[in-house]
Amino acid sequence: MKILHSSEFVIALVLLAAMVLIGLVNPAFWGLDNLFSLAKSNVVIGIMALGVLLVMISGGIDVSFPAIAVAALYIVVRAMVELNYDGVLVPFLAAAAIGLVLGGFNAFIIERFRMIPLIVTLGTASIVRGLVLGLLGSSIVNINKMPKELIEFGRHDLMTVEAANGATYGLTSMVLVYLGIALVMHLVLRHTMIGRSVYAYGTDAESARRAGFNTRRTIWFVYCLAGLLAGFAGMLHTSMIWQANPRDFQGLELDVIAAVVLGGASIFGGRGSVAGTLIGVFMLVMVKNSLILLKVDTTWQRVVVGLIIVAATAITAWRDRKKLA
C-alpha cells in the first residue's frame, strides 16, 4: 500500500492522465514515430536532470550545467577537428573529465567559502561560457566537419519501423545509455553510504556532520558528479545532432530544473528520486513536444515551462511544509 502514497506513484498517474488527454486531442501522439522522437528528446535533458537531481537532494541548486555541457562538447569537438582525430571513447572520456573539473571548481568554491550554490553556479556558468567564446571563438562546427565516427555513434538505432508512406523511424540506442546511467544513479543514491550522505546533508547539514559523515566529501561528490554528467550529456548531444554550437543550451537550465521539480524533488533538499526524475523529464519533454504539435509558438512555450516550474515548486513546497509541521 505504501507505494500508492509515494510521490513517484502520484507523478506517474498525472503523467498517464496527461498522455491520455493529449492522445485524445491529437491521436498522432500515440504514433510510434512520435513516441520514438519523444524518447530521443529525453536522453540529453534526462542525463542532465540526473545531475541536477543530485545537487537538489543535497539542498543546493546548479545552473552551470548547460555551460559546462557546452564547454565540454565544444572544446572536445574543436580539438578533434584541429588534431584530425576521430573516435568515440576518448572524446566522451575527455568531455566527462572537463565536466568533472568544472564541477570540481563549483565544489571548491561552495565547500571552501561556504557560498550559496545558486550564486556560485551562476558565476561559473558566466565564466565558462565567456571563456569558451572568448578563447575558442563562436564558429559552429557543422556536419561536414564533424568527426564521422561520432556521428555514426550518435545515429545508431535500437530498432527501426517503416511507416505506411515509406519513411523509417528509429528508436535511438542512446536511450539505453540514458537508462543505464539512471540505473547506476539509482543504485548510488539508494544503496551506497555516499548516496545516503547526500540525502542526510540535504536534510540537515549540521546533523549530518554530527552523525559522522564527511560532509566536505559529500559536497565534492555531488558537484563533481553533476559536472561529469553535464560534460557527458553535452558530448552525447553533439553526436546526436551532428553539430557543435558554442551557443547551445541557452535557457536549458530552467527546463531541466522544472523537470526535476516535476519529478518530486524538494527545493529544500533531502527529497527526490531517480524514478521520479525520469517521469518528470518525460512529462516536460512531452508537454513541450505537444505544444509543437499544437503549433504553439516557441515564445509561448517559455510561458508554459515557467508556469510548470512555478506550479510544481509550489506543490512540492506545500507538501514538504505540511510534512515538517
Binding site: 545516503r196 540525502y199 540535504g202 536534510t203 546533523s207 524538494s266 533531502g270 527529497r271
Partner: peptide, 9 residues
C-alpha cells in the same frame, strides 16, 4: 535539544 535527526528519512 534538536535531536540531530533527519526528518526526511
Amino acid at each position: 535539544q534538536d535531536f540531530s535527526l533527519f526528518g526526511n528519512l
